[in-house]
Design a protein around this nucleic acid. Structure first.
Length: 367
DNA sequence: AAGCCGTGGGA
DNA sequence: TTCCCAAGGCT
């Protein structure tokens, strides 16, 4: 037993011999591992090919709360433009934020740069092959430290993400709702982690959760762990894990001002580093206030004849729905904005904007 | 230590 | 339409 395993998932006293369950899963993984751009498959790994820690780290940051399909093109673009951690560390902040635009959770991009610069400056451009050292780096928490340690360095660390929580809850028929059940599920996962092939095992558990032990309609008939699954025997598996209900999202309203100068330049501003869409480019606008609290305050960034579009932009964030009124204006060359700055037409790429700002642009763009 | 922080796809 | 969900971390 890994009696002294911690919440970080690192399990220094895992069993010397993998339990039969781990072997069953690895055997399944050898036949069903999915191809991904950042992955060294079980055959290559068995042939001694090691994954590149930079690519493992980059993919794991991108995959936080984000689907494989959404990550794929961003991963390709980042690795083509910045092939190693030293190159990324040397990039401009605005370049990286623009390249991340559309992927969401923009604090990840800010921490990505901080982490790359820490690795370049304090670790000689080499990711530390050490769970505790990884955990200290910006943007690397318990899950990512364990994932990089296991996948990149074959350290027997236990990864616990949403997939693993679901698999463990079903395997052990654990009725406690999340997030309260997290410590219990972490311990159960640590107790299964083998000493051999920890990198393949980590990916195998997550693949199992992503392809077989899915949130809805799990394919129990194809599952290598079905014989030992308490949730399957009890018939409770599809309903697990239990979760405490979430509050409904409130509606907020705001106004965005899209000013186009007669030479085609657009008036934009860089948002503050902290908070919603921190560090990203956006349209100047009002605060976004709860719809029940009244109407947003008119706050045009430049003197102009503003026209309100008939259609508002709608967007849903993690914790609220936004309805954004769009106002547009065409302004002469000699007028100075009170907020933001004009970006010349040839330098402006809508793809550099976070999605809500791009939606506003799509409604306002000249046709 | 709960609340904050995006997005797109599927049911 | 609405809600849920995804390879979480930070404060």
């Amino acid at each position: 037993m890994s009696r002294d395993s911690t919440d970080t998932g690192y399990s220094p006293t895992a069993p010397a011999l993998p339990p039969a369950q781990a072997e069953d899963l690895l055997e399944w993984y050898d036949r069903h591992a999915r191809e991904m751009p950042w992955r060294t498959g079980p055959r290559a790994r068995a042939a001694g090919i090691r994954p590149d820690p930079y690519r493992v780290w980059l993919s794991e940051i991108m995959l936080q709360q984000t689907t494989v399909a959404a990550v794929r093109p961003y991963f390709e673009a980042f690795t083509a433009r910045w092939p190693d951690v030293t190159a990324l560390a040397a990039a401009e902040d605005a370049e990286v934020m623009a390249a991340w635009a559309g992927l969401g959770y923009y604090a990840r991009a800010r921490n990505l740069l901080k982490c790359a610069r820490a690795v370049a400056g304090e670790h000689g451009g080499v990711f530390p092959a050490d769970h505790a050292a990884l955990l200290k780096l910006p943007g690397i928490g318990p899950y990512t430290a364990a994932a990089v340690a296991a996948i990149a360095f074959d350290i027997p660390a236990t990864v616990v993400d949403g997939n693993v929580e679901r698999v463990m809850a079903r395997l052990h028929d654990e009725p406690t709702p999340l997030p309260a059940a997290k410590p219990v599920l972490t311990r159960l996962a640590a107790d299964l982690t083998p000493e051999t092939r920890p990198g393949d095992y980590a990916q195998a558990v997550m693949d199992l959760g992503a392809t077989i032990c899915t949130p809805r309609n799990p394919a129990c008939g194809l599952c290598p762990w079905r014989p030992s699954c308490a949730g399957w025997h009890a018939g409770t598996a599809p309903a697990l894990p239990a979760k405490t209900p979430k509050a409904r999202k409130p509606i907020r309203r705001g106004i965005a001002y899209l000013a186009r100068r007669v030479d085609g330049a657009w008036l934009l501003e860089t948002r503050p580093e902290k908070g919603l869409l921190g560090g990203m480019l956006g349209w100047p606008g009002s605060d976004w206030i709860d719809a029940a609290a009244g109407a947003p305050t008119d706050a045009p960034p430049i003197r102009a004849e503003w026209k309100t579009l008939p259609e508002e932009a709608r967007h849903t964030f993690t914790h609220f729905h936004l309805r954004l009124e769009i106002r547009t204006a065409l302004v002469p060359m000699d007028r100075t904005p009170e907020r933001g700055g004009f970006v010349p037409l040839e330098e402006f790429r809508p793809a550099d904007l976070p999605t809500v700002m791009r939606k506003a642009f799509d409604l306002a763009r000249p046709r």
